[in-house]
């Protein structure tokens, strides 16, 4: 691969010639702020937060879209750049509800994070404010356009990655907002509820409907594999007080940061009150709670009695395509080595 040599913040670096400035900076460990950037999507260069100064260029350049060129000299945090970013945040804040105290996104909101980093405490602009009705038609998430910053990530994920095209930009200028065609509402649209738009929203515009109140900083993230179909999507379970309160997609080899509706929103069975929590033994046609010892004792007694009376071939077990490899291994070992039959199968055919 051909490489070029550039200078970022006076430091020389060699990078592939198809890199953007943003990628080159990332490689050097320099953090350039972005709101509309997602490495899986075509560069959009809409939010302008990633602007940098390129020697010789008259205007500030968007680092997410501009490719590197040999000899380029770039400043990522010059005074001019910082002022530009402050102005952008100031403009965004001019039309954003100042409700971080109660906003569910607080703590993981990019706008909040950058306003803090760039010391934007309040807006200097007075003017019209957006006033949209919240679309809460989806059982899974809200679309609150009063908080939208028009970065377009949701629209692009829906069209470029998910290819559902349920949402798009409606109207123009100040009235530009993300909606379904003819404002029919998410639930009446072609939306497949994958929630990939929700997962990329940098602010509180697209938010999961949660049964629990939690702040991101109160949760721990546990990387795991989805328990539904065989795609093996990687995801993070958000856990607060021994409860799974949310799911975020992870960038696994098979899912590339995407999930479907079941993976993203189908986790409430974990904490469901119907969960079995004690062994049950049927006595006179009714289930009675028992101790583990009693349940184990009964199983062992039955196995031994039936085995001595009829041999091993009258035993059979269905192992499970939903359990782990380790559990499937032990199940077949229990039947083969513990009981003495190969009658072990599972629902691969069903």
């Amino acid at each position: 691969m051909d490489t070029v040599i550039i200078k970022i913040n006076d430091e020389r670096v060699e990078v592939p010639n198809d890199f953007t400035i943003l990628q080159a900076a990332k490689k050097m460990g320099i953090d350039i702020p972005t709101l509309c950037y997602d490495e899986r999507l075509e560069s959009h260069a809409a939010c302008r937060m990633c602007v940098v100064e390129v020697e010789g260029a008259r205007n500030l350049q968007t680092s997410c879209s501009l490719k590197v060129a040999d000899g380029m000299e770039i400043k990522t945090h010059s005074e001019r750049v910082i002022q530009a970013r402050k102005d952008i945040l100031d403009l965004l804040w001019a039309n954003h509800p100042n409700d971080c105290l109660t906003c569910e996104k607080s703590g993981e909101c990019k706008l909040q994070e950058y306003c803090y980093k760039y010391d934007v405490k309040e807006t200097t602009f007075e003017g019209k404010r957006k006033n949209y009705e919240i679309d809460d038609s989806s059982p899974f998430f809200y679309n609150n356009q009063n908080k939208c910053i028009n970065c377009g990530k949701c629209v692009r994920v829906c069209s470029e990655l998910q290819h559902t095209n349920a949402i798009g930009f409606s109207e123009r200028g100040f009235n530009t907002h993300v909606s379904t065609p003819f404002e029919i509402g998410i639930d009446n649209s072609v939306c497949v509820s994958c929630g990939n738009c929700v997962s990329v929203c940098p602010v509180g515009a697209l938010m999961p409907k949660s049964k629990e109140k939690f702040r991101l900083w109160e949760t721990k993230k546990v990387r795991t594999t989805c328990s539904y179909c065989g795609v093996g999507c990687q995801m993070d379970l958000l856990v607060k007080d021994n409860k799974v309160v949310g799911v975020q997609p992870a960038n696994g080899p098979s899912n590339n940061g995407l999930l479907c509706v079941k993976g993203k929103f189908g986790f409430n069975f974990i904490n469901h009150p119907d969960r079995l929590n004690k062994p049950l033994i049927k006595k006179d046609g009714q289930f009675v709670e028992s101790s583990w010892e009693e349940a184990y004792g009964l199983i062992v007694e039955k196995v031994n009695n039936i085995k001595s009376e009829k041999g091993s071939e009258v035993f059979a077990g269905f192992t499970s395509a939903r359990c782990t490899n380790e559990e499937n291994y032990l199940f077949q070992k229990l039947f083969r080595a513990g009981i003495g039959t190969n009658s072990v199968d599972h629902c691969a055919r069903l």
């Binding site: 179909c229 065989g230 093996g232 192992t319 939903r322 490899n325 499937n328 072990v344």
Partner: peptide, 15 residues
Amino acid sequence: GQNNVQGACDMGGLP
């Protein structure tokens, strides 16, 4: 179709 149907086969969950 299921999260670990491949693994259940790989692990000998077959007669």
